[in-house]
Design a binder for these strands. Structure first.
Lengths: 192, 192
DNA sequence: GAAATGACTAAAATTCAATTTCGGTCATTT
DNA sequence: AAATGACCGAAATTGAATTTTAGTCATTTC
């Protein structure tokens, strides 16, 4: 198109700035500058800073959904799909600049908007996980425990192994995590 | 005894004050006042405020150990013992004034000493849990997954169900938690 | 005349010096 | 020898002055 797409410019600038400086330290003036746009222009597309942030989050969530769906094959067993989904999801979570920055911000400054943002992402993951769990339950691949609780516990399990664990021990390798979750989720603690 | 036990007076005063005001808001002057003792006297027993706090923590940990051991019968199955231990432990954690105050303090002020205190307690629980898990593994009651990881995951599972869950949903009843953990730990997600 | 601008405002955040609080000491008292 | 509490310096708190920033809107641009 002949005229520049200012909305896109704003979004791209905001993506960069939020990922680089986090929510609090991103100023609307700065976003406008990077976007090569006057500040007022931002407000013709987004009612305020939080809305702009929301837009970025929405696209992150969409991207995460796309990534994890890539790993799912309808004909593969639930555990296989689950492992690949969680693995790529948590890798994304651990490597995406914006998410890293938001984690830091929550830890160091407790910025409410950053916390809420991460909660939204976690919620989206849970929603998606729940659907997979429900499907597996219907196919009789897993037992009938409440899918809401099951998906919640699965997510917490993965976070425990990939991140909480590292606060007191050396990180587990991907192979160790895969092996542990496979055995733990498929048979619990019962002897083989 | 004829002479008053000043050490005991100090400890009791500190227990009260830490439980009532948390770490940061407890002043040595105030502890001295409650204990009916001059401030200098405290320093003949404890080198500094952190040491005094540590003394209180140590007795809390001892009390938790006592409580959870009360629930363990060598002749009962591992899962039974585990459930009763965790249940009483987490109930204690949720009801003990000092621990409640420390959780608040970590949440609201991020006081390092309060955080470290809670970490010490969690570590003590993990140590104890690990021993139970090792014993059960030796008896062939559970499989041979790494006891360190298993106990870590068990603790995280209980915390997920008894406290994390409540941040987004109505609390689960004790019965629901018991039933879920029993089925989940003994058989994973596999169909019955 | 619709879209874009950027100077402007009110509110929020930051700074910093003055003041207060508090952990820890130690000369004196019991 | 044990206990005390006035005292000290460091750290935390306060609040007034200053700066920053989200959001507005009269003006300009195309």
């Amino acid at each position: 198109m002949a005229v520049v797409d200012r909305r896109k410019q704003v979004i791209e600038a905001a993506e960069k700035s939020f990922a680089l400086f986090g929510y609090k330290a991103t100023t609307m003036d700065h976003v406008a500058k990077i976007a090569n746009v006057a500040k007022g222009t931002i407000y013709t597309f987004f009612t305020n800073k939080e809305e702009l942030f929301d837009e970025i989050l929405r696209s992150v969530i969409l991207e995460m959904k796309r990534i994890s769906e890539q790993e799912v094959r309808e004909d593969r067993p639930f555990f296989e799909n689950l492992y690949h989904s969680m693995d790529s999801l948590l890798e994304y979570r651990a490597e995406h600049e914006l998410l890293i920055k938001l984690f830091q911000e929550v830890r160091d400054f407790a910025t409410p908007q950053a916390r809420e943002g991460l909660e939204k992402i976690e919620h989206a993951i849970l929603d998606y996980l729940e659907k997979q769990v429900e499907r597996a339950a219907q196919l009789g691949e897993i037992n009938g425990l409440d899918p809401k609780v099951v998906s919640f516990v699965i997510l917490k399990l993965y976070i425990a192994l990939t991140s909480d664990w590292n606060k007191i021990h050396d990180p587990l390798s991907k192979e160790q995590i895969k092996e542990f979750t496979r055995r733990f989720l498929s048979g619990g603690l019962s002897p083989a």
